[in-house]
Design a protein around this nucleic acid. Structure first.
Lengths: 198, 198
DNA sequence: TTTAATATATACGATAATCGTACGTTAAAT
DNA sequence: ATTTAACGTACGATTATCGTATATATTAAA
């Protein structure tokens, strides 16, 4: 049956996602995926009707996973600071994962099949997070040396960075990138202490 | 003759670079380049022996251009800050010029033909600036907890904010905005000193 | 203007990649 | 032992790609 937890299927999904996020939807082939995943083509067609179906399944899984992670953060009893960090990290780890490559492809091909779904999901994530932050700032539970509006704007812009190849391309892992951004967001470029330029 | 300024050749180089920087060296074909450039294959092979030769020529041209720009900055008698700005601009505008895509490909394929050349070039561009910054950091004149390259990127992005009315519109004066941005840039979201979360 | 040289386009054969499937094989469940 | 699910091999059909041989147009020289 369509055993969703088959090892072979997992291998296909994993390899498929890797190649997909790197090369886009057009420049990959099922043969390549099978080759790299160590799976025969017949097995591939056992689980997926074709490449398109596989992509759809992968994206669907991805969005589901992300939703679950978001809910987990929301429901958790982490201190609010940690929640914010978790959100930002999630957003960055996902925006890249969703793939700058795919973002671009989707953007460039308007009538794209999964465009709306992804956009909707994206909005959902951002709005949910920003609304929470706004609320806390308005309630005075968060104090910052920066105007709240400025903060919100910056956070919004930062999510763009994660889809910018010039930025993402410098980091080996998404974790490293997210960590760096968080570090900057909270503490700025300069460490505390005397600072001189020239 | 191998007219280096032929229109057709330019079209090939231009399109070739676009596709190359986007899809990498492996996932493009000369037929595709010719198709997109509006050039016949025969013309392609008039100017280049094959795809590899074309890539080599493109990269060579690119590096030469970049070298010239770097030297121009170095030789200029601009004040130090202006030189830094120029470097930032060079690095950000053109300078992922090699394209994150190629950087990654080269990084992942050690025995790559142009790896050394490109690495050397990259060092020349980045080191020139970053070494200066790092020097200042080491000398205690600048202290930072953020990767200098990240800093470069962020600075560049901040210049975008200044052109975004959603951002500018919040401030009565330009000074207020600059102050806010600098405050954020230097100290991050959290001010040093008494900052409470929750 | 005629002629030679050069630039560009078309057509081609050879090879390889890709798709989706028919069929055979293993391994486990009944 | 027999059925059934999972998986691999081999296949035909189609398409892409390479590099070249040949044909045409354009330009420069005589």
């Amino acid at each position: 049956m369509e055993n969703r937890s088959s090892k072979k299927r997992s291998a296909i999904v994993e390899t498929g996602w890797r190649l997909l996020s790197y090369h886009g939807t057009e420049r990959i082939s099922v043969e390549e995926i099978c080759r790299e995943a160590g799976v025969s083509k017949m097995t591939f067609y056992k689980y997926f009707a074709n490449k398109q179906a596989m992509i759809g399944a992968i994206l669907k899984d991805l969005l589901q996973t992300m939703d679950a992670r978001i809910d987990a953060i929301r429901k958790s009893d982490l201190p609010y600071q940690e929640k914010i960090k978790a959100f930002i990290r999630l957003k960055m780890e996902q925006a890249a994962p969703l793939g700058w490559r795919l973002h671009k492809e989707f953007r460039e091909c308007p009538g794209h099949k999964w465009l709306d779904e992804i956009k909707a999901w994206n909005d959902k994530v951002i709005r949910g997070f920003l609304d929470d932050v706004k609320e806390k700032i308005a309630a005075g539970e968060i104090r910052t040396n920066v105007n709240p509006e400025t903060f919100l704007y910056i956070v919004e812009r930062m999510t763009d960075w994660a889809a910018d190849e010039r930025f993402v391309g410098r980091y080996v892992t998404v974790e490293a990138m997210a960590s760096e951004v968080l570090n900057f967001l909270f503490y700025g470029f300069l460490g505390q202490g005397a600072v001189k330029w020239l």
